[in-house]
C-alpha cells in the first residue's frame, strides 16, 4: 500500500512538474515587443506583417519555421500587436482585428476606423474590451490632426471609437495595469486608464524623443532617439528615471 501511494505521489509530482514546465514554457518562452513591431510570437507561432500580408510560421520545432498561411490584409500595414487570442494589425488608415483561435489560420473579425482621422493610423495596443491607437498626421498629404483614439471592442466585430485625445506627433504606446504610456515624440505621456474609455493625462516627461515603450514588470523600456531609457514604474502613474543606454 505504501509503495502504491509513494508511486502515486511520485507520479503526481512528475505530472505537476511537467505541467508547470509546460505551462511556464508556453507563457514565458517568448519575449515582448513594442507596439511598432512587425514580428510577434504567440505560443508556437511567429506572425509577421510586411506592407500587405500577414504570414504565420509554425516555430514549435526550433529551429524550423514552417509557413502555414499567408493572408492579404490590406495596404500600408505597419504594426502587429497580440492580445490573448486576437491580433491587432495597424495600417496607415485603419486597425484590422484578427482571431487566432485557430493559430495557424488567422480569421479577420473586423476593422476599426476612426471617423474623423483619415490617414496615419499607427500602432495599436489592446486590453480586455478596449483598444488604444495613435493616429499621427504629418507631411503635406496627412490628415487634420493627431490623436490618441480609444475604441470600445466589447463587440469585437463592431469596434466603436468612443474617445479622442489630441496629441502632437505620437508614435508607439504601451500599458501596465491602470497606466497607458504614449510616445508623443518630444515627450512621454502617462495616462490613468482606470476608467479605460476615458484616459486622464496625469504626467508628462519631456527629456527625450520617444518612439516606443515596453512595460515589463516594474520597468518601462523606452526606445528614444539616442537608444534606450529605463524608468521604474513600481508606481505605474509616476515613472522614475533609472538610467539611459546609448
Amino acid at each position: 500500500m505504501k509503495k502504491v501511494s509513494l508511486c502515486l505521489f511520485v507520479f503526481t509530482a512528475l505530472l505537476q512538474w511537467s505541467c508547470t514546465k509546460e505551462g511556464k514554457g508556453f507563457v514565458n518562452s517568448s519575449g515582448k515587443g513594442g507596439s511598432l513591431a512587425r514580428f510577434t510570437i504567440v505560443g508556437n507561432y511567429l506572425y509577421t506583417v510586411d506592407r500587405s500580408q500577414l504570414k504565420v510560421f509554425d516555430i514549435s520545432q526550433t529551429p524550423k519555421a514552417l509557413l502555414t498561411s499567408t493572408e492579404d490584409v490590406g495596404f500600408e500595414i505597419e504594426t502587429i500587436f497580440p492580445f490573448k487570442d486576437k491580433l491587432f494589425i495597424g495600417s496607415t488608415s485603419v486597425v484590422h482585428i484578427f482571431s487566432i483561435e485557430d493559430p495557424q489560420h488567422p480569421k479577420k473579425l473586423s476593422t476599426a476606423i476612426s471617423p474623423t482621422v483619415m490617414r496615419r493610423c499607427d500602432p495599436v495596443v489592446a486590453k480586455d474590451s478596449v483598444a488604444y491607437t495613435t493616429l499621427r498626421t504629418n507631411g503635406i498629404c496627412g490628415g487634420v490632426r493627431s490623436i490618441l483614439a480609444v475604441f470600445d471592442i466589447k463587440n469585437i466585430e463592431n469596434p466603436v471609437e468612443v474617445y479622442q485625445y489630441p496629441v502632437n506627433e505620437p508614435y508607439g504606446l504601451g500599458y501596465a495595469d491602470s497606466a497607458l504610456y504614449v510616445c508623443d515624440k518630444s515627450s512621454l505621456l502617462v495616462f490613468n486608464i482606470s476608467r479605460p474609455y476615458e484616459p486622464q493625462l496625469v504626467t508628462q516627461i519631456n527629456e527625450n524623443e520617444f518612439f516606443d515603450v515596453i512595460a515589463e514588470n516594474n520597468t518601462l523600456v523606452c526606445w528614444v532617439k539616442q537608444g534606450i531609457v529605463l524608468f521604474d514604474i513600481s508606481n505605474r502613474l509616476d515613472p522614475k528615471l533609472i538610467t539611459k543606454i546609448q
Partner: peptide, 25 residues
C-alpha cells in the same frame, strides 16, 4: 554605441535594441 536606434524587445533579463539596418544590441 547606439547610433541609429531601432525597435526594442525584452526577453528574460535581456533587452534588445535594433541598430537600424545593421543588427542588434
Amino acid at each position: 554605441p547606439i547610433t541609429n536606434a531601432g525597435k526594442i524587445y525584452v526577453y528574460g533579463n535581456y533587452i534588445f535594441q535594433n541598430e537600424q539596418n545593421e543588427g542588434i544590441h
